[in-house]
Design a protein around this nucleic acid. Structure first.
Lengths: 329, 329
DNA sequence: TTGTAAGCGTTATCAC
DNA sequence: GTGATAACGCTTACAA
């Protein structure tokens, strides 16, 4: 590898002069400038970022931790984060937890060892150990999707969205509404969306039937099973179903179609998240859009802010959402 | 930041001993081992990868260049690449070109400056300059999706898949088949898929009607427009349409539905790529699956191989595909 | 079995 | 304006 020293020698200058030239710091005479420029062009010299970071303690790299990359939400977020960061000369180093909480912590360490300037964590399960690790992190971190006390985070208005969506269903005349959720460990999706749903019913004095409540994981097939469970165990069928994710909703729709239950005539279905599929399925799915694109860019900006102002107070941002009305209701 | 020297001091050892302990290289007495272990645990010491790479010339980081992250293909590939590399202790640094050829080259330089151990390039437009840049890269690179002479690449059997799919259409009795392609600069998708289509027709002595050929870009809406163009300019309507990507196919379907042309009765539609949506739309789309997952893992393995055997000959791998028969035919 | 010291490629300080 | 030189945190001969 060609180094700054060799460039210096070839250009008849010292490495300090070359460095000054490269970083636009301090004086370099026009003549020296020309010579150095020429040598660099001819040799195709590329400075080593490692040596640079070792000195400057700055890497211009941001770590991004995601549960899985191959979901709509993750890929949209990462894309947006990357776009925004690239504009500021930063790059992304990816860490995938494959949904394992242990790996979340491991990745935190890994990224730290790479001296990333900051971390964006797309959180799923927030546990004590994770919070402890984050707290003692010497670099800024922004969490996405889940509230983490004491640190900056950006979340969706899961509660509001679920409540609004449920109210939409009620407005359309539904009183018997089923619910397919996920475990409440996932505060955002499991707890808040459920709470929004329940509160909406409560406020309208509509009773909640336990037989109509089921729990799925994030898979399409689990949505299918949950819908099946609900319909098989109850005599009195609901007329609508609220699913906390689009995948679950689509799974549920598959079961409904299988038993020839017409959507939305016999059963209205709503999802959450506005996945790319949701608009192409038949009937197209009524869902809520969380503008991941916007969230990603905001996360990047917030992180950059924290990198500049190391003493900045933690910020809490709640994103807005919009209900997308389609044909499944 | 706490350094190896401080650990050494606290553990009453020298930094070399600590280093030996850390890397399991050379002798460390049990006693020293215990002391060091304790200090590291207590201090939460994490070695600096930068200093390490500066010395060892190894970063355990792989650069991955993608055109866009938010497409099915990219996100699946990156996910698979990441999984495979993570198993070998490597991490990924992402570079997004946002479809700009200039950025492809720029990113190559950027990654080089980060001294990545290797690069995986999800190529779209292969031009002279890009090839030149790649050739003079001092680190191994594996290209995905496009053939690049002289370097290792993994491609889909675009030609075979298109031909097979067209033959399927012919087998089903279609003789008037329309085609929606993309510009041929994209050799894989634009040129080879078109060639496969044409050759299949030629072999069965089926005439190709220019009025039924249209060009789209990769957007859904361009598929819609292309379908419209074809049907509006021809008196004699085709009975089937081959689209070189699923997005284009879905766009075409949207137009067909709009004019109440029944799929597949009035018009059969096939796509390419097996996007996630393709199975959920109605009617579900007949398409070809390229097993991106497998391709990603293979790419990672191949790159790792080149990193080990720097003198390895360039390898050319062609992936197999499978036709997914669904309801749109 | 352990420690010393040189060196990786930069930048920053300071003297010229 | 420029150039020695030390330092960043680590590994690795080599000496002890």
């Amino acid at each position: 590898m060609i180094t700054i020293k060799e460039i210096a020698k070839l250009a008849n200058a010292s490495s300090s002069t070359v460095s000054r030239f490269l970083n636009d710091s301090g004086y370099v005479s026009d003549e020296a400038r020309k010579r150095i420029e020429k040598v660099i062009r001819e040799t195709g010299y590329i400075p080593s970022e490692h040596a640079k970071s070792l000195r400057t303690k700055q890497t211009k790299v941001i770590g991004v931790i995601v549960p899985r990359l191959s979901t709509d939400t993750s890929s949209r977020l990462v894309n947006a984060i990357n776009d925004e960061l690239a504009e500021h000369g930063y790059q992304i180093i990816l860490a995938n937890t494959n949904l394992s909480p242990a790996k979340e912590i491991e990745n935190l360490k890994l990224l730290r060892s790479r001296q990333v300037d900051g971390i964006i964590l797309l959180a799923t399960n927030v546990n004590e150990e994770l919070i402890r690790e984050i707290r003692q992190l010497p670099i800024p971190l922004v969490a996405l999707g889940q509230e983490i006390p004491g640190i900056s985070f950006i979340v969706n208005d899961d509660y509001g969205a679920a409540k609004d969506m449920t109210e939409l269903l009620i407005t359309r005349g539904h009183k018997k509404i089923a619910f397919i959720g996920v475990p409440e460990q996932d505060r955002a999706v499991g707890y808040f969306r459920k709470k929004g749903f329940m509160d909406a019913l409560q406020e309208k004095s509509i009773s909640i039937c336990n037989e109509w409540m089921a729990e799925a994981n994030f898979d399409l097939s689990s949505g299918y099973e949950a819908m099946k469970t609900i319909l098989q165990r109850t005599a009195q069928k609901p007329t609508a179903v609220f699913a906390v994710t689009d995948s679950i909703a689509i799974g549920a729709m598959h079961y409904l179609m299988e038993i020839e239950c017409h959507i939305p005539k016999d059963m209205a279905v709503v999802g959450t998240g506005n996945s790319r599929v949701s608009q192409y399925i038949k009937p197209s799915l009524t869902t809520v859009d969380f503008s991941n694109e916007d969230m990603g860019r905001k996360a990047a900006k917030l992180l950059l802010h924290h990198i500049k102002e190391t003493n900045g107070e933690p910020k809490k941002i709640t994103m807005t959402y919009s209900i997308i009305k389609r044909d499944s209701v």
